[in-house]
Structures are given as C-alpha cells and as structure tokens.
Amino acid sequence: MRVRERIRRSFTRHLFLKIFALFLAILLWFQVSRKGQEYLSFQVPVTVSHLPPQLELTRTSPQQVTITLSGPPGLSREVPPGSLNILLDGSLMHEGSTVVHLLPSMVSGPPGVHVDTISPRTVRLALEATIQKRVPLYPQFVGSIRGPFPSIRVTLSPDSALVEGGSRSLSRLKGLRIAPIDLSLLTNDKKQVLSVPLTLPVNAQFRIVNPRIVTVTITRVSGKKNHKAKEKQEF
C-alpha cells in the first residue's frame, strides 16, 4: 500500500507545473514543426477543360473554393493572387448533374507548394447537350426623335440569329434584341441605313454563331403622324 501511495503522490505532486510543462512542450513542438514554412489561404475559381464538343457546362456550384497552401518562406511572392485555380478534366463527363471530389492534384500552382486543405471538398456541375437554334431579332430604341414624331418603318437584315448553347438554356430563349438605336441621332433623310452590332445579353449561357452585325433600315412613312414605333418584347 505504501508503494501505491508513493506512486500516486509522485503523479499528483506539483500537478499544475507538470500540466504547464506539457503545454510548453506541445507548443514548442508545434513551433518547430512550422519552422521554415509559410501558410496562405486563397479563394480560387473552379474551371473545367477538355469538355466534349457536344456538351455545355451551364452551372458550377460553388464557383469558387478555399484552399490553404504551405511552402518555403517567400511563398506569397511565388503565388500571387489570381494565379491559382481548380482545374477539372471534363473529357469523360456526361450530360446531366455530376458531383466531383476535389483533390490536391487538381490545384494548379508552382512547384514546391503543398495543398493542405480544400473547402468544400466537392463541387456539383450541370452539363447539357449542345444544340443550335434560330431566334428572331428585335430592335430597341433610346432617346426620342427631334421635332414632330413621324411614322417610321424599321426592318432588320437578317431578322434572325443562329445561337448555340445548352439545350435547356436555349429552350427558354425566345428572341434577341440588337444594340439600342438612339432616335435623337436620326437625320431628316427619308431612309437611313445603320449597321448595328448584335451582342450577348449579360450572363448569357449561349453563343452567337451569326450574324455579328445587323443592317437596320429606318424609313419615314408620310401621311401618318404621331404614330410611335412599337417594339416587340424580348423574352
């Protein structure tokens, strides 16, 4: 019993100092293990390359992930912001929704850099079949005609455009508007011919195959006054 009592006392004597010494030892080990290392965190975009030509990437969720890197001192100079991304190989992907597990090997970066963490570890991709579709073109106007408002006739050539994109995205596309025409810049000529570019709407998930330029002919029609040109609504 005396031996057990001595052992118990040896463990409990100066308990606070022993715990403090253990804490210092762990802290020292942690500092030594980090010596000569630099740690950085970045928000990096997720990109997909080598997609088959018959597929369209219509959604990536999330579009960015957070990665933590470690490397030798001066790492921040070797890896400037914007130089990293998550690069996914889409050559074997198929139509539909797919979940991709992110690996350190998918992070593009300079040699000698170690990827410690990636958060989140998965991304969800939405892939659609690539199709082409012809949609009507509509004019749009800004400003107002100087003087009495005449009746005008507007014609577009061509009056439709060929677009390309994902099947579901294009199923919702009913038409496109050309760039705005400033009515205040029109002259008094009976007929005016303008070359107006056809540009993509903001956040469009399709491409314009043709045309790039639309010829707009504006003709003043005599005998009718105060007739406003009506615009067709873009869907």
Rank of each mutant, 00 (worst) to 15 (best):
Q192R: 08
H101C: 00
S119E: 09
H114S: 13
R77W: 05
T98C: 00
T199F: 01
F16W: 15
S144H: 14
V32R: 11
F141N: 08
G71L: 08
K174E: 03
V32I: 12
R172T: 01
N188T: 13
K190D: 10
R134P: 00
L176P: 02
W29Q: 04
R168C: 00
Q132F: 04
H50N: 15
M106G: 01
I7V: 13
P139N: 06
T58M: 07
Y39D: 07
Q205T: 08
P62A: 02
G71V: 04
L22Y: 07
T68F: 03
I86Y: 04
K224T: 14
D189C: 00
V196C: 11
T98I: 08
V65H: 10
G112A: 10
S49F: 11
S61D: 14
K18H: 05
K225H: 01
Q31R: 14
P62E: 00
T12Q: 13
E164Y: 05
L194N: 03
A204S: 11
I218R: 03
S108R: 12
S61V: 15
K18S: 06
L156G: 09
L183V: 03
V65T: 11
T199M: 11
P211N: 10
V214Q: 01
T155W: 06
I152E: 08
T219D: 09
T117Y: 13
P80I: 08
V3Q: 13
L102Y: 08
H14I: 02
S91L: 01
S184A: 15
T215D: 09
P197L: 10
Y138T: 10
R13C: 01
H50F: 08
P201L: 11
H227G: 09
L57N: 10
E95Q: 10
P62D: 00
P52H: 03
N85T: 05
L28A: 15
I152A: 04
K230S: 14
I213A: 11
I86S: 03
L22M: 13
F235Q: 07
S195H: 07
P201F: 12
V48K: 08
F20R: 12
K133A: 05
F20V: 15
E164W: 02
A21I: 10
R146W: 02
N85Y: 09
T219C: 00
V154A: 05
L84E: 01
R153G: 12
G82K: 01
T122G: 00
Q64N: 11
I213R: 12
R124H: 02
T217Y: 07
L87I: 07
V135N: 07
V196F: 04
P197G: 09
L88D: 04
S97K: 11
S10Y: 13
N203Y: 09
I152L: 12
R2I: 13
V32D: 02
R212D: 13
N226Y: 07
R6V: 05
L15Y: 09
K230W: 06
R8I: 14
N85S: 15
K133H: 11
G71A: 09
E38D: 06
